[in-house]
Nucleic acid binder design. Structure first.
Lengths: 206, 206
DNA sequence: AAAACCTTTGACCATTTGGTCAGGTTGAGG
DNA sequence: CCTCAACCTGACCAAATGGTCAAAGGTTTT
């Protein structure tokens, strides 16, 4: 690590630290409830320093949302349109469950945003998400037409997958409370994933 | 409407108006994001008047949450433990979908609360919800033991039902956006309910 | 009619909070 | 060394907001 690199690296590290903690604070308190001071404290930086990297709270929030969206797209690609239904859906559900476990805060921020009418991400919903959904719906409809799965409304099937997998992130606190206050362990996550996958696959006759 | 009744009625009407609008504002902006001024404006009352009926913002919020919990319990009872799986689950899912349609804001406030770690309703989760869940899990397990449904983890089945039905309330904005910006009509709600019910019932071999 | 009580409201206050800024520090290049 | 640009930070400010209060307006009871 020499000369010119040092500064850039330090900058990236600061950005990373801030974004990471901002995600957690935004998830826990919502956009308005999260304060720059709280994010600063969590990041171990003075508040003014945050404003050096991100001019406004909204700008910081946007970046957080965009990172989440990137992760979300990663899962989206695991829905392999060329595979058969069993394979494609199994992989997709597993990936979504993994994301719920690895990035619960991101999922929570996204949920919060949608609940509040998606003031920031409206364009994502209308463009990227809408297009992605349309292509998958077409794929699922083809499966139905080819008799590979039962007659189901593909849109509602997608909603069911999203809802169920994201539940383990967004309602993490409720799930943990009903688990005696203990976070799910490896085996429990496995069981959850398996159950969700099996019920859905069986439910659509795949 | 004479004498002593008038005051009580007026009082109840004021309370109703405030609670109704508070629910919407809390759903749209979260606890911190909602302002007493905004709730007052929506209710057509001066802010000071809200504080006459509810000493603090938190007290108002608690009442809103409690109303939601009451509605939630109403659905809970529709899970008739004496019926057979097909009947019990069909009725329960339908009821939950109806609530999602009739009280989306209530569901959103609840979701927001849970996402943020349930600072207010923690006791509900640990007591009422926990007990309710336990009894239903026992019922479902009996169904499994009696061979009435396939071998599934009853807890995850419940989570799936909650997640899927509440998705139509909490993610209403996303659902509407992906529906071309139009709210679901009667037929679409019917289709959603039917699809959810069928996939789940078939998925557990009921 | 008048006392007692409930309800309404505009004006006000203390605190919180997003954002600014001037001055300081650090490290790269000459 | 010295200069310059990038980076950091304590102190500060204006606006927003939860909550208070005293006075006024109604309604019920005696």
């Amino acid at each position: 690590m020499d000369t010119a690199r040092k500064r850039n690296t330090a900058r990236e590290e600061s950005l990373e630290v801030i974004l990471h903690h901002a995600e957690q604070i935004f998830a826990e308190f919502g956009f308005k409830g999260a304060t720059m001071q709280a994010i600063a404290d969590a990041s171990g930086l003075p508040k003014a320093n945050l404003h050096y990297y991100f001019p406004t709270k909204l700008a910081l929030y946007r970046e957080v949302i965009e990172r989440i969206f990137t992760i979300w797209l990663e899962a989206a690609n695991s829905f392999d349109t060329s595979a058969n239904p069993r394979e494609a859906l199994t992989r997709y559900i597993r990936k979504k469950m993994e994301i719920s476990r690895a990035h619960p805060c991101g999922s929570k921020v996204w949920a919060n945003e949608v609940i509040q009418g998606a003031p920031i991400i409206q364009d994502y919903l209308q463009t990227t998400l809408n297009e992605w959904t349309d292509t998958r719906i077409r794929v699922i409809n083809r499966w139905v037409a080819e008799g590979k799965i039962a007659t189901v409304d593909s849109r509602h099937l997608l909603y069911m997958i999203w809802a169920t997998t994201q539940h383990y992130a967004d309602f993490q606190h409720q799930v943990v409370t009903l688990n005696g206050g203990k976070r799910l362990n490896d085996a429990q996550w496995d069981a959850a994933t398996k159950n969700v996958t099996e019920i859905i696959l069986k439910g659509i006759g795949a």
